[in-house]
Simulated assay, not measured.
Amino acid sequence: MEVIIREIEVNDYPEVVTLWINVLGNRKVNLDNFSVTLERMNKDGNYKTFVALFENKVVGFITTVQALSFGDEIGYLHIQGLAVQIELQNKGIGTKLLKYVEDYSKGKGISTIILCSGFKRTDAHAFYEHNGYDKDSYCFDKGL
């Protein structure tokens, strides 16, 4: 299966939004707020979103932010979202997206990647562990 990974382009937005809703279950995401937010992220310069293409169609994505951290000059990379089309899961696409981001991070001198995953997403947890990620903390949030 030949998968190409590249940085997101405007014409990819609808497919990425569909993946965000269908795979990650985030119904708050829509094309309008996605476009506005991604434009702001691009201006910031610390955010990157990459898409996986199979047969010229977006079948997956990963979005990241480079965050600063005390005690680490370069900081770390935080994966904010990763999704692969349900019908194409378990075919190595998610792993290719992770490896791409890992290589990107190494190229920037970043040595740590973190991510959060919901308690109920046990398949995702197994996927991350299979790819060498350790389950070493809880993420907490509070709606205001």
Rank of each mutant, 00 (worst) to 15 (best):
M1D: 10
V3H: 04
I4W: 00
I4A: 11
I5R: 09
I5D: 09
E7N: 12
I8M: 14
I8P: 09
E9I: 08
E9L: 11
V10F: 02
N11Q: 14
D12L: 06
V17Q: 03
V17N: 08
T18F: 01
W20D: 10
N22A: 10
V23T: 12
L24F: 05
G25W: 05
N26P: 00
N26W: 12
R27T: 13
R27H: 07
K28F: 08
V29F: 00
L31K: 11
L31I: 15
D32L: 10
S35N: 06
V36P: 00
T37N: 12
L38W: 13
L38G: 00
R40D: 10
M41S: 02
M41D: 09
D44L: 02
D44M: 01
D44P: 05
G45T: 05
N46G: 09
N46R: 13
N46S: 14
Y47D: 03
T49V: 13
V51P: 01
V51G: 08
A52D: 07
A52R: 02
V58S: 04
V58G: 05
F61G: 05
F61C: 02
T63L: 01
T64I: 14
T64L: 12
T64K: 02
S69H: 08
G71K: 04
G71W: 06
D72L: 03
E73A: 12
E73F: 08
I74F: 00
G75T: 06
G75S: 08
Y76W: 08
Y76P: 06
L77V: 14
L77H: 01
H78L: 12
H78C: 09
H78D: 14
I79G: 13
I79Q: 10
Q80T: 11
G81L: 08
L82K: 04
A83W: 05
Q85T: 10
I86K: 15
I86W: 01
E87V: 08
L88N: 10
Q89A: 04
K91W: 01
G92A: 06
G92I: 03
G92V: 03
G92W: 02
G92D: 07
I93C: 08
I93M: 07
G94Q: 06
T95S: 15
T95Q: 13
K99R: 12
K99N: 13
Y100K: 11
V101I: 15
V101W: 00
E102Q: 12
E102N: 03
E102F: 01
E102C: 01
D103H: 07
D103K: 13
Y104C: 02
Y104E: 09
S105A: 15
S105C: 13
K106C: 01
G107T: 04
G107Q: 06
K108L: 14
G109H: 07
G109Y: 06
I110P: 03
I110G: 07
I113A: 07
S117C: 14
G118W: 05
G118K: 11
G118I: 00
K120E: 15
K120Y: 10
D123A: 15
D123K: 15
A124T: 11
A126C: 02
A126K: 15
F127N: 07
Y128T: 08
Y128H: 07
Y128G: 08
H130V: 00
N131V: 07
G132D: 08
G132C: 09
G132P: 09
D134W: 00
D136I: 10
D136C: 11
D136G: 11
S137G: 14
Y138N: 10
Y138L: 14
C139N: 10
C139R: 13
F140V: 05
D141V: 02
K142R: 14
K142N: 05
K142Y: 11
G143W: 06
L144H: 06
